[in-house]
Write a protein that binds this DNA or RNA. Structure first.
Lengths: 334, 334
DNA sequence: TTGTAGGCGTTATCAA
DNA sequence: TTGATAACGCCTACAA
């Protein structure tokens, strides 16, 4: 059914190696045979079998991308960046979502490895247990790049300065006169969320302030979680004057909860998010994060390592986060 | 470096074929050797090479997914559905975006084919030129499932009843008293957009009404396009009393444009979208589309064909679109 | 400049 | 119940 190199050899009366050589642009062939081969390949619609090629060259022209959730704009933009660079290189990408499950993450990496990807991009879940599977990759000298650093692992990574982002939003709120600040943190598996929270706490405590337990939430991930948190806040006797949300999606949920109760942002509470997602019509003050660029950087770094070999020095690329002031934070005058 | 089946054979003193047989759960091996093999594989961390396996079995345990834009919630949800089913089957998915470019679509399909995917899911661009590459797939009897039917191509597909969705929204507007209706259509490559537009025109003309040229737009795809259309509408002396948008993203853009000019939806114009995307806090009347379910259906249908062989009858799965009434359409009383 | 032979890691076939 | 041996489709020496 499918045409192979041997078929072409028979048809042209040439040897397999000749066909292979011409098709791979090696030199040392007469113009005549070259044309003959090219014409035959074209004519019969020969499609090289990358699987077979991969088996013999050790390059599958394939990379794996393991993210948390493709449904989140943060990751879909990142994915877009990765894909564009990959296709520039003639590479195809395997996409897997870990869905915030640690075991799935491991299994997906295994699956990619058994498919002999040339490299991996992983947005690893942060968790207490272990990063063994990532250290394993390093030990096996599989090329990979991480989104976010892993302590003790000397490997290339791309990350955002989440701590600084957290600092910026907190200072912005302080400048606007807020003293009672809440925080809707993400899942414990999110490094970004942790860093932002930590920065917030640091900045506050430097001013002799602190997050109050009843204004601090955890595990916010989807819109629904934001709605839930919004409802809880509404039910409280006293509300923080401002809430920092782990990301825009969660913030949007809070907005939704407030709107449905006839409350308004920022009049009834100020609100800040992270990501600066496109699909935002609410004038949310947020922090822009160059996820698309990061996706490209991840891919470029990975290809650097794939083509550069195991001695390629580890890269650390850090993207800044930048406060984008809109109208969801009001100025408090005590 | 990497452990192969031959290595295991040497280590255990058994033959390659024995190792292979045990590992693939074939029967006809004594419990003793079986244990011996399993233990060795476990102990030395043997990972089968799917590439080699693929070369010999013709199954790569790999499917390809070609969509238009992963950044659009419509496709990211669909992708999620596909992925979940794929991983149930132990399959990994190649993701490619055509970015609305016909040539890219063809190339990506080629790339997947050369990687010998077991099957393909394609959300094809609609365009005048040709569907040759899809007919080719059929001719080569590559298993594939389409999102949306292609005229004359007898192949499995999953689609949404876009015509009916268009009908529903138009009738809803008529019921609410609207007579001057505008339409922001998507790219000409979108079948969904065409169908909705066609339905709208049909319903209107059945009532002796018609879309006016100055209220009809084309090529709307991103938020920015919606903003643009919103601005144009604002600049007009006369506006339609309601605008139907090809999708929620575009509708969101229109909302944004109106809001930034201090105009309000639905007071200054009614608005309707399609998709019912999650990240919506604006109470937009829209049409819900089960994209996640469609993704699952696409994958299930594809696996049916992959495992069922070439004689598997073509499936046609049609999902209903359902009007979701919120508050972006006002009642007009003449 | 071209052809031959062997190998990549696996599965499948057939003897033993 | 096990073990040789030949594919699978391609690439890469090396020989002609």
């Amino acid at each position: 059914m499918k045409l192979t190199i041997s078929d072409l050899a028979k048809m042209t009366g040439l040897a397999k190696s000749t066909i292979s050589g011409v098709l791979n642009n090696k030199d040392g062939f007469s113009e005549k045979t070259r044309q003959k081969v090219l014409k035959a390949a074209e004519q019969y619609g020969y499609v090289p079998n990358e699987i077979a090629r991969g088996l013999s060259t050790k390059y599958t022209k394939t990379i794996g991308l393991v993210i948390k959730d493709i449904t989140n704009p943060f990751y879909s933009k990142l994915t877009k960046g990765v894909q564009e660079v990959a296709s520039e290189y003639g590479y195809t990408v395997f996409l897997c979502s870990s869905f915030e499950d640690h075991r799935t993450e491991k299994e997906q990496i295994q699956a990619m490895l058994s498919r002999r990807v040339d490299g991996l991009i992983v947005a690893p879940l942060l968790e207490e247990v272990t990063f063994d599977h990532l250290f394993d990759l390093k030990a096996k000298s599989v090329p990979f790049v991480l989104l976010g650093s892993v302590p003790g692992l000397d490997n290339s990574y791309v990350e955002f300065d989440d701590y600084d982002g957290g600092r910026q939003v907190t200072e912005h709120l302080l400048e606007r006169g807020h003293r009672s600040i809440g925080f809707a943190a993400g899942l414990p598996t999110s490094r970004a969320s942790r860093e932002r929270l930590r920065a917030c706490q640091d900045v506050l405590s430097a001013r002799g302030l602190a997050l109050r337990a009843e204004f601090t939430f955890e595990g916010a991930q989807e819109l629904a979680d934001g709605v839930e948190i919004g409802r809880k806040l509404i039910a409280l006797k006293e509300r923080p004057s401002a809430l920092i949300c782990f990301d825009d999606v969660v913030a949007l949920g809070v907005v939704k909860a407030f709107q449905s109760e006839g409350l308004r942002i920022p009049e009834d509470m100020s609100l800040i998010g992270f990501d600066d997602i496109d699909l935002m019509i609410f004038p949310l003050t947020t922090v822009s994060i160059p996820t698309y660029e990061a996706g490209k950087a991840l891919a470029r770094t990975l290809f650097g390592r794939i083509f550069g070999g195991p001695d390629t020095p580890a890269q650390r690329i850090i993207f800044d986060e930048k406060l984008v002031v809109r109208q969801s934070v009001r100025t408090v005058t005590n």
